[in-house]
Write a protein that binds this DNA or RNA. Structure first.
Length: 699
DNA sequence: GGCATGTGTATTTTT
DNA sequence: TACACATGCC
């Protein structure tokens, strides 16, 4: 009965994996074999005779769930794929609400909108309410949706959120309130859920008498990864799901909590033993990832945190591998950003020569645009790379256009998709679009207790052209109707609808001429449409295709320098947030300057600063063998073509006392053609001396 | 009312 | 640099 793989676990890991029933909190430091432990626990539970369909594994990304389950699959020798419930909170909510949402009056065909769609709806409402052109500037759409999300997820009063996080918007409290009011009503009327709704509704269902029990009883065991980055609602969902059966294991590390901007609260992990009395607490502290010098510096960075829970990661690698203790991390002082780019490239190529593939190296940064210059330099040098966390595939306008068409067929009530689609037509602007939409409204749906009466939009039949459609757009509008009909989305006799990929193809035939009219470089964008069609080929239903794409969008731009061959070796560029849970042999952290890390957007409160510190900690602990931290001395102002610049300070998270833990290197560039010039210690003082000398000459 | 063009501005992190 | 908003022409 004793599974052989249990021998590969250390005592703490084994205790977690084989723990019996009841609540458990696993505090798992960086690199302590968390995924392995979770996988072993799944395998162990199955080995104990648990039914896979009755296990729920909640993770932060779909990839993390897939990884853990694939590992469990190998341990159990198969039979798990697609059976264990695994995925993000949001994806799981979506799945459950299709079945149980009716308990809340939610039709099972609801569609899901991402944050950008939510922002667009806010924008629409804001202009309807005339808030766009008031004398003062009203918050922008992205800000509105960020505020909304924060209010909902932290369940805090709007006024308080504004005061704490958006003080410059406080004067607009009334207007914001009005927008939010409309926003929630419209979503409800249109049978559309945003990310926050998914959690809210799941929570409501989980805590409903009767239905709540039915949902809860589906799961014998619940496992939750990255618990430090869950929010209040997520914790409430879990409590709701465990009213009768208390089998729950949460895994996390308070030192890696980096999502408070999404209302994640570290209180969840700290209060777990109170929420689930009698919970066992297991600590994993043996680090299998990084060499000791990397851990020494990481621990030092964390040691200055205001609040922290004594934890000292100790590497087991030097013992296991009988290697020397490894090199100190390098702190590379660069003259400016170009020098930083050159230094990074040089070291990456050096590592490649040491036979470390690009895929096992990563460059990490605080904000998506921090890698802009580096991307140019990498392209110039023909170093292929993939970037995680920047602009996403689904955020491209042309992809959104196609998705809007698909979503309309799934849910004709979806106002935002209508708006988007109608604006594609030649000669149709916001005003005509509104009038056309009004013409497409069907009979009024009566009031329900919380939703006022509304007329829902219907797909037009071919041949039906409302008078509101401007003359110039008649042809394209008729074509649009034909698309709906051909895809089987309209018509009395429910025509068998085409497979998703064929629908994308049909839409494309309609869209391509419009598309060529609208975009300057249609060819590159056309390739994206190919790709969308390819992805669609993996799905049987249109509904699951579009929902999956919004809940789990492809996280990297296929921004390969050179031909996008999947087999090719490529370097990883990633925001620190997106690097969570990953590891690489060599890690380069760029822009370790104050103002970048910590971001000067996040230095308002000690809590924010502490989170920025944890961010650096997360970045550092991704490294297995070598860690490089880069710090440019000068930043040039982009504004005007001048040589104006400012001097930066090294990130405050590496205090002078910690410098001895690093190898210190300084680099400058000799010139554009020799970016690999010798390492130089810069001396602005010497340059000044020349000026002084010259000045003295004519004095 | 649609659309092209011009001007000013504010810039994190993501399911 | 992209986006929101204003302006002016069809």
């Amino acid at each position: 009965m004793a599974a052989p793989w249990l021998d590969e676990l250390n005592p703490a890991q084994r205790q977690a994996a084989t723990y019996g029933d009841g609540p458990v909190l696993v505090i798992a430091g960086a690199g302590t074999g968390k995924t392995k432990t979770l996988a072993c626990r799944v395998a162990h539970l199955i080995g104990r005779g648990m039914v896979p369909e009755r296990l729920l594994l909640l993770t932060f990304t779909r990839r993390a769930a897939a990884e853990a389950l694939a590992r469990a699959e190998r341990l159990t020798g198969g039979g798990l794929t697609g059976r264990v419930w695994g995925g993000t909170f949001h994806a799981t909510a979506n799945r459950l609400l299709r079945q149980y949402g009716r308990a809340l009056g939610l039709a099972p065909e609801f569609t899901v909108m991402d944050q950008a769609d939510a922002a667009d709806l806010m924008n629409l409402i804001r202009s309807e309410l005339g808030l766009a052109k008031t004398h003062r500037r009203f918050p922008r759409k992205a800000t509105l949706s960020a505020i909304y999300s924060r209010v909902v997820n932290s369940r805090t009063k709007l006024a308080e959120i504004l005061e704490k996080h958006y003080p410059w918007c406080q004067d607009d409290l009334e207007g914001i309130r009005a927008v939010f009011e409309q926003f929630t009503q419209r979503k409800r009327q249109q049978n559309v859920l945003d990310y926050d709704d998914l959690l809210l509704y799941w929570n409501a269902v989980a805590n409903l008498p009767g239905t709540g029990e039915a949902v809860a009883d589906r799961f014998d065991h619940i496992l939750v990864d990255e618990y430090q980055d869950t929010n209040l609602i997520q914790a409430e969902i879990l409590r709701g799901l465990r009213r009768r059966n208390r089998n729950i294991m949460v895994v996390g590390d308070d030192a890696q909590s980096i999502y408070s901007f999404r209302a994640a609260t570290v209180t969840n992990i700290l209060d777990f033993p109170t929420q689930f009395p009698g919970a066992a607490v297991i600590k994993l502290e043996q680090n299998y990832r990084s060499l000791q010098p990397i851990l020494d510096t990481s621990n030092r960075v964390m040691a200055q945190a205001e609040h922290q829970f004594a934890k000292n990661l100790v590497s087991t690698r030097s013992l296991q591998e009988a290697t020397p203790t490894g090199l100190k991390p390098a702190l590379v002082t660069c003259m400016d950003e170009p020098a930083q780019c050159a230094a990074v490239c040089t070291r990456i190529l050096e590592a490649l020569e040491r036979n470390i593939p690009l895929k096992r190296q990563a460059v990490l940064f605080r904000a998506g645009h921090h890698s802009d210059q580096l991307e140019v330099e990498l392209t110039r040098r023909n170093i292929p790379f993939v970037k995680y966390g920047g602009l996403k595939f689904v955020e491209a306008a042309h992809i959104k256009d196609v998705l809007a068409l698909l979503r309309l067929m799934e849910n004709p009530g979806d106002e935002i998709s209508w708006f988007r689609v109608l604006l594609l037509l030649e000669g149709v602007g916001p005003a005509s679009a509104r009038r056309i939409m009004n013409a497409l409204r069907g009979p009024t749906i009566p009031d329900t207790p919380d939703v006022p009466a509304a007329a829902i939009l219907r797909l037009p039949h071919p041949g039906m052209i409302p008078a509101a459609v401007p003359g110039g757009a008649h042809g394209e509008f008729a074509e649009l109707c034909q698309v709906f009909a051909d895809c089987g989305a309209v018509g009395d006799t429910a025509k068998a609808s085409l497979p998703p990929a064929a629908q994308v193809e049909r839409i494309r035939r309609f869209y391509e001429p419009i598309f060529r009219r609208q975009y300057d470089n249609p060819e590159t964008r056309l390739r994206d449409l190919d790709q969308l069609e390819q992805i669609a080929g993996n799905y049987k239903s249109r509904g699951s295709f579009i929902t999956d794409l919004t809940l789990d969008p492809p996280s990297s731009t296929q921004d390969l320098a050179g031909p996008p061959l999947l087999e090719e070796d490529y370097l990883i560029l990633s925001t620190i947030h997106s690097a969570k849970g990953c590891e690489w042999d060599e890690v380069h952290i760029i822009h370790a300057a104050d103002g970048m890390i910590p971001s000067d957007m996040a230095t308002g409160s000690p809590q924010e600063i502490d989170e920025e510190r944890r961010l650096l900690y997360v970045a550092m602990t991704r490294a297995r063998d070598r860690l490089y931290i880069y710090f440019p001395l000068r930043y040039y102002f982009r504004k005007r073509a001048s040589d104006r610049h400012s001097y930066a300070q090294l990130t405050r998270f590496i205090p002078p006392a910690a410098l001895s833990l690093f190898d210190r290197i300084s680099v400058g560039v000799a010139g554009e053609d020799s970016p690999q010039g010798p390492d130089i210690v810069t001396s602005p003082a010497a340059a000044q001396a020349i000026h002084r000398m010259l000045h003295d000459l004519w004095q």
